[in-house]
């Protein structure tokens, strides 16, 4: 897993470094240090250190997953769905849907408590952010007034 993560960082760093060399100049037209100066140093250092770490840590013992990895994946997927739903359902409806789904998974069997929390918390958030602070809350595509 760690090697996979390091490999991912190495790939991204290689792409970053390639762009820094291909598109950004070391010196500006005025002869001063250009926009590519710092990114090239950062990119080369990152690639070198990631490659070195991959080499050094290749013999590290295999990591085992905890029994809770499934819950973590479900929670991360729910968070992604929540962000996606913001643009469609708008702030209030998507937060109610997210809270209901998350509590149904995490707090099983307590239907009344879950229903109260799924309605009360999003409503509080909406009142604080939209009404009190006049902050931006997504409207969504449904054209609802909240």
């Amino acid at each position: 897993m760690r090697a996979g993560f390091l490999g991912g960082v190495l790939l991204a760093a290689a792409g970053y470094t390639w762009l820094a060399f291909a598109e950004l100049a070391w010196l500006s037209s005025a002869g001063r240090l250009g926009p590519g100066f710092f990114p090239r140093i950062i990119g080369v250092s990152l690639v070198a250190l990631c490659a070195y770490s991959l080499l050094i840590d290749r013999g590290a013992s295999r990591e085992t997953l905890t029994p809770y990895w499934r819950t973590t994946v479900v929670l991360a997927a729910l968070s992604a769905l929540f962000v996606a739903a913001l643009d469609v359902l708008g702030g209030l409806l998507s937060t109610i849907a997210f809270m209901a789904a998350a509590l149904w998974i995490l707090n099983r069997g307590r239907h009344v408590q879950n229903a109260v929390l799924a309605l009360a918390l999003p409503l509080c958030m909406y009142l604080i952010f939209r009404v009190w602070l006049n902050a931006a809350v997504p409207r969504g595509m449904l054209g609802l007034p909240f």
Binding site: F82, N107, A136
Partner: peptide, 24 residues
């Protein structure tokens, strides 16, 4: 219980981030 706190934290993080610049 943490199982009740966690969804609230995700909710605050998500709505809080959006409200900074209104950017999805």
């Amino acid at each position: 219980p943490y199982r009740l706190l966690a969804p609230s934290v995700i909710l605050i993080c998500t709505i809080g981030t959006y409200s900074v610049n209104g950017s999805i």
